[in-house]
Design a protein around this nucleic acid. Structure first.
Length: 484
DNA sequence: AAAAAAG
């Protein structure tokens, strides 16, 4: 039995007074622990234990420890119901009727009061995959927007076109009765292409999109940001990582700040490695934060396995003979590969063997990508091969099986696993506490070593499937995962 | 011998 400590403890911290727009000039390395006094004192802000008894029936990782550190002395009380949040009746209707939500999930219960209570502090929030982060910032945006002001007031930046579209769909469903307008700022497909100069200025109150398009619209003066009062970065660690979208994100932040209005910044992700964490805590100032230990980040409901494969052909055979045969009783499957090229190679091998499979990767045409995602979300396709395009955020509850055809590795050093990508990939299964299984196909000593490092990093045990070509072994694994 | 966005 895992010990149940207080789920969240709040502490007062004193942060360096720095503006998030200043970061480009200010790269001074800084010891974050020196400026942050994190005590485990329970200063009574968060009544989490009280909340626990309501939430224990919910199908999600409620026993997870989310550690809260608040800045300043605003007290926050965890919301045990959505009514606690002073949401408009229209928004509550969307939550209960359209979204069919009953109670806030844990991350929602803790983060929403922080987002919605004046003086609207910035927030850096980490929470498990599939625990309902999207709802946190969507609700935040919808309820902070002034419905009477017809101008962009909330901006949400996402790493992929697919994620931006998905988030907008959630927002529109949740905000259906509010009359709040929204627009998606992603590269348009060829059929709907309108040159930027011919586009009318954006009047939508909430804009969700990808960095390039947002930047483009801003610089063409089609997207005014002077009324923007809430700025969200989904998958924030990636959006602010050195090899991610860092420059674009900082640029957007800076432009908004330059326009004058005070803007609340929300950073959400399931992962924040130490490097990014140190960076983001320097880019935003005066923030509240929610964090999860990396050892507690793997979802218990998703069983992880490793499969030792003697050669490349064996990997294809595992997909063909095990995943296709057993997987269809189990739900949908995503197969992750490292490169666009291996995506098409695998696709071809499987297609030649007569299996029906679709593939998505960034080199495809926008409209093809949209079509593939739509088919998969509609349940018309069962098995989807993907690059890390879909590693983050993609929410399809019927996905119970994730295959790492290739393990995720760091770009700059391929003998190092990319722990964050690994966690995001396996988080495509087990949405909202559902059961799931992950099969890591390992080929050679390098893969074994990478796998060991991953196990060590997250402090998890990844069970071995005894034989790659035994149907019984895979059946047993799926049974143990609760899928058969 | 990377993926993502976008020009």
């Amino acid at each position: 039995m895992a010990e149940k400590t207080d789920s969240a403890s709040a502490a007062v911290t004193s942060e360096p007074k720095r503006s998030w727009g200043d970061e480009v000039e200010d790269e001074t390395p800084e010891e974050p622990s020196a400026s942050t006094t994190e005590s485990e004192l329970n200063v009574g802000g968060l009544a989490i234990d009280e909340n626990k008894k309501f939430n224990k029936f919910l199908d999600e990782p409620e026993d997870s420890n989310i550690k809260a550190v608040t800045s300043g002395d605003t007290p926050y009380t965890s919301a045990s119901t959505f009514e606690d949040l002073n949401l408009s009746p229209e928004l509550l209707k969307g939550l209960y009727v359209d979204m069919k939500f009953q109670k806030p999930s844990k991350i929602q219960a803790i983060s929403l009061p922080m987002i919605l209570t004046p003086p609207y502090k910035n927030l850096i929030a980490q929470a498990h995959n599939g625990s309902g982060k999207t709802t946190c910032f969507v609700l935040g945006m919808l309820s902070r927007v002034d419905p009477k002001l017809q101008a962009p007031q909330a901006l949400c930046i996402c790493p992929t076109r697919e994620l931006a579209i998905q988030n907008l769909e959630v927002l529109r469903k949740m905000g259906k009765h509010t009359g709040i307008t929204s627009e998606c700022a992603v590269p348009m497909d060829s059929t709907n292409y309108i040159p930027i100069a011919k586009r009318p200025p954006v009047t939508a109150q909430i804009v969700i999109g990808t960095p390039g398009t947002i930047k483009k619209w801003m610089s063409a003066r089609k997207l005014g940001v002077s009324c923007v009062k809430i700025l969200v970065f989904d998958e924030a660690d990636h959006m602010l990582a050195e090899d991610g979208f860092k420059d674009d994100s900082l640029r957007i932040m800076k432009d908004i700040e330059r326009s004058g209005a005070h803007c609340q910044v929300l950073l959400f992700s399931a992962t924040f490695n130490e490097t990014v964490k140190n960076f983001v805590t320097r880019v935003v100032k005066d923030y509240n934060q929610l964090f999860v230990k990396k050892e507690e980040l793997s979802l218990e409901s998703v069983k992880q396995y490793k499969v030792l494969c003697p050669d490349e052909l064996a990997k294809v055979m595992v997909i063909k003979d095990r995943i296709f045969e057993l997987g269809e009783n189990v739900g949908q499957t995503i197969i992750f590969v490292r490169t666009r090229h291996s995506a098409s190679t695998l696709h071809k091998s499987l297609a030649e063997l007569g299996y029906e499979v679709t593939t998505i990767q960034g080199a495809q045409k926008q409209e093809d990508r949209d079509k593939i995602v739509k088919e998969f979300k509609d349940g018309l396709t069962q098995v989807l091969i993907s690059t890390d395009l879909l590693a983050r955020g993609f929410d399809q509850q019927q996905v119970n099986l994730v295959i790492n055809y290739d393990l995720p590795v760091k770009h700059e050093n391929r003998t190092e696993p990319d722990y964050e990508v690994y966690l995001h990939r396996i988080g495509r299964a087990g949405r909202f506490g559902r059961k799931g299984a992950v099969f890591n196909l390992l080929l050679g000593d390098m893969d074994k070593m990478l796998m060991e490092k991953i196990e060590r990093h997250f402090g998890t045990q990844v069970a071995e499937v005894p034989s790659w070509n035994s149907n019984e072994d895979f059946k047993g694994a799926l049974k143990a995962a609760g899928l058969l």
